[in-house]
Design a protein around this nucleic acid. Sequence first.
DNA 1: ACCTGAACACCGTTCAAGT
DNA 2: ACCTGAACACCGTTCAAGT
Lengths: 225, 225
Amino acid sequence: MSEREDRRRRSDAERNRRRVLEAAAEVFREQGLEAPVGEIAQRAGVGRGTLFRNFPSKADLIAAILVDEMSAAAARARALCERPDAGAALFEFLDDIAGRQRADRALFEAVADSFLANPEIRLAHDEVIAALDELLSAAKAAGAVRADIGAVDVLLLLKGVCEVAGTYGHVDPGLVDRQLDLVRCALSAPAESQPLRGRTLSADELDPRSPPAAHQPSRRRRASV
Amino acid sequence: MSEREDRRRRSDAERNRRRVLEAAAEVFREQGLEAPVGEIAQRAGVGRGTLFRNFPSKADLIAAILVDEMSAAAARARALCERPDAGAALFEFLDDIAGRQRADRALFEAVADSFLANPEIRLAHDEVIAALDELLSAAKAAGAVRADIGAVDVLLLLKGVCEVAGTYGHVDPGLVDRQLDLVRCALSAPAESQPLRGRTLSADELDPRSPPAAHQPSRRRRASV
DNA sequence: ACCTGAACACCGTTCAAGT
DNA sequence: ACCTGAACACCGTTCAAGT
């Protein structure tokens, strides 16, 4: 409770931390994740040592940015849940994410590596899945989406499109829209016509460290439907 | 024509080149593309200089492997064209590629970077597109696939699934099958129900260096239908 | 407490010296 | 001609020395 004296120094450090985060987001957006940390530190106006004091490794820095962007995405998804047309809301979310990926090479590039290790990423990821699940449930209820898929299925399809968007999005922007339309076809196809192999996974089961899946949901996290 | 004397020396060099290629494919398959070239040279039993004599850069080495695998994939696709059930043949090709990606992390990881620059990759890529186009035309004629998509559309969907397979394929193998089933739904959905935005691209238009697309096919390369 | 930049380790690439 | 490994450049990370 008595942290009055610390404030001054901490605020300096906190300011540096924020500067590094902003510079990193900027540099990664422009150059991709291979950009050297030296440039980030330079643009943030701090020494390299300060960068590593706040983020023990480059991967941690990337993860921190990813957490921010995932939380923001989850918030946007929750906002879309208010929309009257649930089907349109879901597809608008997919368009939204893919559009951002087109402007920011680094966005989904980061998803590949970091997931497993970082617990903060896990939390943000769960948040995204929960919001997407809500959107999806409403879209199913509205008859806009087939009943036999889950939020993880949708997220993986989206990841695929974003990966393509990162590679070819700058060649022809319409290409991403087209891929998304195809995903839409897959999601709205009648479930009876072509049953899917396997089953939808829970967010937990995507974590490689989790045991082979006991097949029983351990704790029900209900999305307010 | 008079290359008798050279043969002896060349055969040594050629053997080294092949050893490097084999070692590289092995190492990349096991460790991904970030594996150090030093280990490749060591496993091939040559000095690092020899590796760089045959492949001016690590990217060139990766490209060489990719060309081999793409040519092989194109050959398999052409073989599938003989099948009586054209729809099944197309989807078997998709399963085949995705299955290989699951076993070899590096396979599609390489696609992202190298395409643009390397002309040999362009040739192999065109070969894949041509074979896929043939499979696709037959599947359309058989009524198994909608008429309004092209080979590039299919390839990009496949790339998306393979990207996911590379990241999560080891968590649950069935996940990849499921994603492929969803792609299948997208491909076999009736074209009338949900028209796609944009238009399908030609292989040339995927090349970022090619001009903004004159919209007129410069040279008709007919696939023997 | 926090900051800094010199120093270290690692990896892709080059090249002088060998045969 | 081709091979080799020492040497170089670059980048992530650490740490002794500053304030």
